[in-house]
Amino acid sequence: MNSLILRTATPLLSGLMLLFSIYVLLRGHNEPGGGFIGGLIGASAFAIYAIAEGLAAARRAIVVPPITIAGTGLLLAALSGVASILFGDAFLTGQWWFPSFAPDMKYASTVVLFDVGVYLVVVGAIAGIAFALEERE
């Protein structure tokens, strides 16, 4: 797309969106947000980047093929559930770690890992779909 404004603004905009998506992902446990929303924002960041800068640039920016990201996320989510089996609970029971130096930290848990998995699946799958559709034959 040959819009100068868009091409100038996009790198900054995409970067901000990506950052924001991670923020939304992590705040999701206590305030509105979470893996699904974060993932959608992240996927939009790549979609916009691809529209403005071209598909090749976007593929370089995302480094690995998007569908690989989705697969990794699915694996991560599944593995986060396996952890609880090791502790003797049912599959996917949340496990929490409260380190002595930071007893109030609420991020060291398999639940957050699971949410990260969700995020990666959504980013990967939807960015993958968008890239595939933007590709001209």
């Binding site: 699904f36 959608l40 959504v122 799958a125 939807i126 779909i129 595939a132 559709l133």
Partner: peptide, 17 residues
């Protein structure tokens, strides 16, 4: 609904293609 939205979007994309 939250999951339904995301899933219906994926399937919508699939249907489109």
């Amino acid at each position: 609904i939250l999951t339904a939205i995301v899933i219906s979007f994926s399937l919508f994309a699939f249907l489109l293609v």
